[in-house]
Design a binder for these strands. Structure first.
Lengths: 341, 341
DNA sequence: CGCTTTACTGTAATCGATTACAATACCGTT
DNA sequence: AACGGTATTGTAATCGATTACAGTAAAGCG
């Protein structure tokens, strides 16, 4: 029912080739013809058929964003930044949230490798099956990875510097005099940021000449957005004679869970326990005391990732930095202080 | 470079028509041919070209989700529910977040009305230009609206019952003995839930025979996810001799902003001020005191919306309920209590 | 055995754009 | 007047699927 290019051509008294040129290379067309075509387009309310165009040009002007969840403040911001960049470049976003479900992740990858639904893929914080990531990375689909690392120079990886994040938080606590510092981390073996955090935690201890107690490293296998599991782990850690004097939490949401446990058990922050988070979500400023945390430039990461992908799309053979670390910054607020006694 | 249907046909020794039938109507093909075709598909790692299919069938198997932001816990959950339903029906999601920017919203609508990029549109909580919504509603594009109302029986609207939400919160406060109850609302004239909330607030007062003070109705023009503006409005309300004894906040994030202002100015919750929120976000349970709020079934709304859209897509002419109210539930926690004195 | 039915398969038109190539007109040069 | 060059336009092939229609063979039936 909608008008086709042929209708426009007929009305304007030109060929479809000319109409197409008006749309894509107006400089090749005489002003007069251009005018008539545009007038016809207006009259008929014509729109290109993107399916036809895609078929012919092998381009979709769409990029897929694969992520574990959108219910995460950091990912939220990244996606919004990605969209901002995409939209100005004329691209549209396909949303693929895997929810940590391997089957779903697999299905999405299967869909995407068709290459007829998106021109490129932005893969954020993969958690499920590392093999699917590798499959994708070895395919022909332009790919940019965020917070994951594959050893393939054709695949740029953008990593939030979580080594530094844990390092800064731990060093801050050590500097305050703490010696028993717990690390609440994610155990998912292929979740890169978790490995990085452990690294930073250990490095800070090493530099300070302190030997960390392995009993104070708690790892949970579940991502934080399914955070019922955290409660028990936190209680086990805090309700024992030998409890730590400080906690480096995986992120702000986990840190807030620590707040809740403390309130229940009559522990005061920061007098009895210092706590640090990560991400600097909105409520970390609103809680009492305000949370000492690490601010991560999520928008920056999203923008860079999308720009990199665009570069790969327009110049597929130009080399790309295989690995980028994005610096983060500790924000000291009220939840950390010197140890009791 | 990728294999086409013709390659598969050649390898399997059949025509492309048969290959297509194996893919779409296998019951029309002999077992033997089916086997050979599938084997060829496997060998060549063949995938359909979706652009070609779309062009021929006039279907994209994609639905667009237009929303003001994804950085909102309620919208988050809705989108995840929408995706769950979409994925099982074989649909993919196109993400269009307008960020309250009329130009962007317009651009997206323009893109979507092409009808060649998505089969249908799910429009969540429109805030910008009501005209663009109307344009879309009058077009031929199947559409489902969430938290907005247009008087067009062809467009189903799913409204979270924010009349009841404000009514329940206000009635709860009136029941505790409060008489001076402030309403922190959004002023955006076309943001439907804000109008509904005012309704519920007034209705509760009317039923209790209390005349609400118009000075206690604060309206901010900015959506909550750009919430720097709220601070000032809240302070103006609370730092005055005639301050209210209770506040019905637009949502939990605004309520938490109230918490922050109270902390600064030495007001205790709930002793000096009762506060209610809306949405029941994660941190509302973590703050001290835990926030009395209204739980909204975001997932339910998302699921229903998507199901409705799917119905419109498969049976375009079957009538659809033009308007659905989704019930909400007050959750009483520690932030509300009897007025001081 | 002839005829209808059923089951399967192939031929070729079609969806709506893009673009290589050819054709034309017009200009200035010599 | 003939020629080369530039600007503009049209013709028609092409992208890769779907599907109406026609054809063939085998089975069923009287």
């Amino acid at each position: 029912m909608p008008a086709t290019m042929e209708d426009v051509a007929r009305l304007a008294g030109v060929s479809t080739a000319t109409v197409s040129r008006v749309l894509n290379n107006p400089e090749l067309v005489s002003d007069e013809a251009c005018r008539r075509v545009n007038e016809a387009i207006r009259q008929l309310d014509y729109r290109v058929n993107l399916a036809a165009r895609s078929l012919r040009t092998n381009q979709t002007r769409t990029v897929a964003v694969v992520l574990p969840t959108i219910a995460d403040p950091v990912i939220n911001q990244m996606v919004e930044a990605i969209e901002d960049v995409a939209i100005t470049a004329g691209y549209t976003l396909l949303l693929c949230s895997t929810r940590g479900d391997a089957a779903r992740e697999h299905a999405y990858i299967e869909l995407l490798t068709q290459r007829t639904v998106a021109d490129g893929v932005l893969y954020i914080s993969p958690r499920a099956d590392p093999d699917t990531v590798l499959t994708l990375a070895q395919g022909t689909m332009p790919l940019v990875l965020c917070n994951y690392l594959v050893e393939n120079p054709a695949v740029p990886c953008l990593l939030m510097d979580h080594i530094s994040s844990a390092y800064q938080a731990t060093a801050h606590l050590l500097g305050l005099g703490h010696r028993r510092i717990a690390l609440l981390n994610l155990a998912a073996p292929h979740y890169y940021p978790a490995r990085m955090r452990l690294d930073g935690y250990l490095r800070a201890h090493a530099e300070a000449g302190v030997i960390p107690d392995p009993a104070l490293r708690v790892e949970i296998d579940r991502p934080t957005y399914a955070n019922d599991d955290w409660r028990g782990a936190i209680e086990a850690l805090l309700v024992q004679p030998d409890r730590p004097g400080a906690i480096v939490a995986f992120n702000d949401e986990v840190a807030l869970e620590v707040y809740a446990v403390c309130r229940e058990h009559g522990l005061r922050i920061p007098d009895d326990l210092s706590v640090t988070g990560c991400d600097d979500i909105l409520s970390s400023r609103h809680v009492d005391p305000p949370l000492t945390t690490v601010r991560v430039p999520a928008r920056v990461q999203g923008e860079r990732a999308m720009r990199l992908l665009l570069k790969r799309l327009t110049r597929p053979h130009q080399p790309v930095p295989p690995r980028t670390l994005i610096p983060v910054e500790l924000v000291v607020r009220g939840s950390t202080g010197p140890p009791a006694g």
